[in-house]
Write a protein that binds this DNA or RNA. Structure first.
Length: 447
DNA sequence: GCATGATCATGC
DNA sequence: GCATGATCATGC
């Protein structure tokens, strides 16, 4: 850390004093910070370039941004993260993005151990500066709302530890190119680069892999902002549970006792008395089967893990394909694959609740299963998405069918056929969405 | 029995 | 009223 002011207006060796000094930022804008900075400041004639985090580093904390390996406030072991939050239509506050912690160096990380890994050396204590994003304002007018010093809880840290191992092991297996954010719970390996072509070499495979960084998932950041999800309940009550089992193993073992049990029996066993025809009946049941009193599972929310119900027919084929939210024709034509809504969904982590129909047509719980889409199937989904975008642009209301790809297809998804979205050519077409083919789901469940 | 079109139930 | 997850209905 090279100081731009001497003496510094805070004690750079003390996390508490750094926090005290940082708190002065609450309620101010970046412009305010700039106005209080010296005349020679390089952010003065900000043309929209440069980063807001750097502005704070130089103009509020008076040091030059350092290299990647060390924490920003090295002497205090504090890493600074300046990150946007957004306000929803209902007034609630949410993270706008994931928080990127550090680039994953594929060549070196395979030799690291968790106990002294580069990630935690840098990111175990985070100074989080949240500012409110507003598309109607200039960047310098964004307001800093909240500053806090963040340290992971023991339980979260254990889950992040397991996530780290999963990511590093995949690289050790020569599969850096197959990494997905859906592989892990709180700590994700997100893509990071100027474009999707920033490829990197990896140690145990000739295949070049996208550059990725460790990051805290957006939903995890939400839990930081809201101080934990008040309405959600944790499955893991005590950190000791994670000493001998992974998070995934705990979840699956809790569900084991329900294996082959009929839905009626499960309902009785967990004392569940909801309307049986509710379409989210089985998803709600999952929380009860995991021993919760509420419907919302804290770990799944923080990890952005979507529960999907799969009903298998007698022959083991899913009764239905899997739907996703309807896409807007006006949106998809402006998207590129890596930033598209469908891509965002498919790179998530899923939890499948699988039920099997017996000879009498009664549903029995079969198993729970964590799932992320394999990267080669993601490539296939991309072709379906590209073709869909092409047809919207060409004004063709006839989309990829399940016979055109073994992974995904497009089908109506609205309240009825009169439920429409506008198209670029000004027409109104029935709302549609991407579906994962039933046959593809079957194949994935078999793994 | 599958592929595709159409619609339902809920929560916010 | 609408977005979302899920399921129903029909024709071949």
């Amino acid at each position: 850390m090279s100081a731009l002011k001497d003496p510094l207006p805070y004690d750079k060796t003390s996390p508490e004093d750094i926090l005290r000094y940082s708190k002065l930022l609450e309620g101010t804008t970046f412009k305010n910070v700039l106005d209080n900075c010296g005349p020679g400041c390089r952010f003065r004639d900000d043309k929209g370039k440069g980063r807001l985090g750097q502005l704070l580093e130089e103009c509020h904390f008076f040091y030059m941004p350092n290299s990647d390996m060390k924490a920003d406030f090295e002497d205090a072991g504090v890493e600074l993260k300046t990150t946007p939050i957004k306000r929803l239509k209902n007034g609630k506050i949410r993270a706008k993005e994931r928080i990127v912690l550090s680039i994953i160096n594929y060549m070196e990380i395979v030799d690291e151990r968790w106990e002294d890994c580069s990630l935690m050396k840098k990111s175990s204590l985070l100074l989080l500066i949240f500012y409110l994003f507003d598309r109607n304002l200039k960047r310098l007018d964004y307001k800093i709302l909240k500053v806090l010093l963040w340290q992971f809880s023991d339980t979260d840290l254990m889950i992040i530890h397991q996530d780290w191992i999963n990511i590093v092991n995949k690289i050790r297996e020569g599969k850096a190119h197959e990494l997905s954010e859906g592989d892990t719970n709180y700590l994700g390996a997100c893509t990071k680069g100027i474009d999707s072509n920033s490829m990197r070499e990896q140690p145990f495979s000739e295949i070049r892999a996208k550059q990725r960084a460790f990051s805290l998932k957006q939903c995890y950041v939400n839990s930081i902002i809201s101080g934990g999800f008040d309405d959600a309940e944790s499955v893991i009550k005590n950190v000791d549970e994670l000493k001998n089992k992974t998070f995934e193993e705990i979840i699956l073992s809790k569900l084991d006792i329900y294996s082959d049990m009929s839905v009626d029996d499960i309902d009785r066993k967990v004392g569940y008395m909801q309307k049986m025809n509710a379409k989210n009946h089985y998803a709600l049941l999952a929380a009860r089967m995991l021993g919760l009193k509420k419907d919302r599972i804290a770990e799944f929310e923080k990890g952005d893990i979507s529960i999907k119900t799969i009903r298998l027919k007698k022959d083991g084929t899913p009764a239905e394909s899997m739907s996703f939210p309807a896409f807007k024709y006006l949106d998809i034509v402006d998207e590129v694959w890596e930033d598209s809504r469908f891509y965002e969904f498919l790179t998530k982590r899923f939890f499948f609740m699988v039920f099997q129909e017996d000879d009498l047509g009664i549903l029995h719980f079969k198993k729970g299963m964590f799932w992320a889409m394999p990267s080669k199937d993601l490539e296939e989904a991309k072709t379906v998405w590209e073709e869909t975008k092409r047809r919207v642009l060409a004004d063709i209301d006839n989309f990829p069918k399940s016979s055109e790809s073994h992974v995904a297809h497009v089908r109506p998804h609205g309240r009825n056929k009169a439920d429409t979205y506008e198209t670029p050519s000004g027409k109104n077409w029935t709302k549609k969405c991407f579906w994962l083919n039933a046959g593809y789901i079957k194949e994935q469940i078999g793994k």
